[in-house]
């Protein structure tokens, strides 16, 4: 129909009225501050004039590129590792009866409730030079391995925090898959492994993509965990954002670095949407 009837117009108006408070809130609390940050990245440090100065300084110092590359490396590693840990976990949880699943979810959420400094000490006890793992290795006569204060430590520490974010989207997808699909496949002669590869896994890809995007965006902004558990090569861009915002008080630079991180996250979303299952990320139809 080319024209909407009076009824449809009225319904559209009511929907708009209902959505108005939330939209205003989002505009004020989310869109406006983002706009201010983007605007701030385009001002000069000393006066309120338009200037590309911040971006020029970032482009002219190779330090930022190097740290940007490190940030991407660590983000991809942490996301991959979190996915490896979270998928089997979500799969196991999906098979549980609802009540036991809820109890086990509490265990999955426990990492959220510990402070990052306490976690760093705890990881030192387990993974450190004189920790459980290395003491056991030494007792078995094997050489000790450096599991902490390097890239390995950073990935382990970040995954510890990110696994719950990866588990939730995958779990909700797996739980929503009708049980009849697996039963039908079994009736048609498929073994467990085949059911998983040909039915469950492909159907769970939208959940996986959602989890991957969420975890990647979170990882891009990490800096405390890498600072505590990493080595000197594990510097993240967010570390510099914090330095410029709070120590150097150079807000255009901090804003410019933040804009670059936002752009990286947006590019990640677009790239993921090309992978099968990812089109839902940009609002497309699922597969």
């Amino acid at each position: 129909m080319a024209q909407r009837s009076a009824l449809e117009r009225r319904q559209a108006l009511h929907i708009a009225l209902y959505a108005a408070p939330a939209t205003l809130l989002m505009l004020g609390v989310f869109v406006a501050p983002m706009g201010i940050v983007i605007g701030q990245s385009l001002t000069s440090e000393h006066a309120a004039t338009f200037s590309f100065n911040a971006f020029t300084r970032i482009a002219s110092d190779p330090l930022f590129l190097r740290i940007g590359v490190t940030t991407l490396e660590i983000t991809l590693l942490a996301t991959g590792f979190a996915l490896l840990l979270a998928y089997p976990l979500a799969f196991y949880l999906a098979q549980q009866p609802p009540r036991r699943r809820a109890l086990l979810m509490v265990l999955v959420l426990v990492p959220f409730w510990t402070s990052v400094l306490v976690k760093s000490f705890a990881f030192t006890v387990i993974l450190g030079h004189s920790g459980f793992v290395n003491t056991a290795l030494a007792w078995l006569g094997l050489p000790t391995i450096k599991l902490l204060f390097n890239r390995v430590g950073v990935v382990i520490g970040m995954s510890h925090y990110l696994v719950p974010f990866m588990v939730f989207p995958i779990l909700s997808n797996l739980v929503a898959q009708p049980r009849e699909l697996a039963l039908a496949s079994a009736i048609l002669g498929a073994g467990q492994w085949r059911i998983f590869c040909r039915v469950t896994l492909p159907l769970s890809l939208p959940g996986v993509m959602a989890g991957v995007l969420l975890v990647m965006i979170l990882s891009l902004g990490f800096y405390v965990v890498p600072a505590l558990l990493g080595g000197r090569q594990d510097m993240m861009l967010a570390n510099l954002v914090d330095f410029y915002a709070r120590e150097a008080i150079d807000w255009p630079m901090a804003s410019a670095l933040s804009v670059l991180l936002m752009a990286a996250a947006a590019i990640a979303a677009v790239c993921l949407s090309f992978i099968p299952g990812g089109s839902a990320l940009l609002g497309g139809e699922e597969r």
């Binding site: 110092d61 190779p62 330090l63 190097r66 740290i67 490190t70 000197r232 090569q233 510097m235 510099l240 330095f243 120590e247 150097a248």
Partner: peptide, 10 residues
């Protein structure tokens, strides 16, 4: 100096 130090650390 902070930028120079971070670069030196890397």
């Amino acid at each position: 100096l902070t930028r120079r130090f971070q670069e030196w650390l890397l």
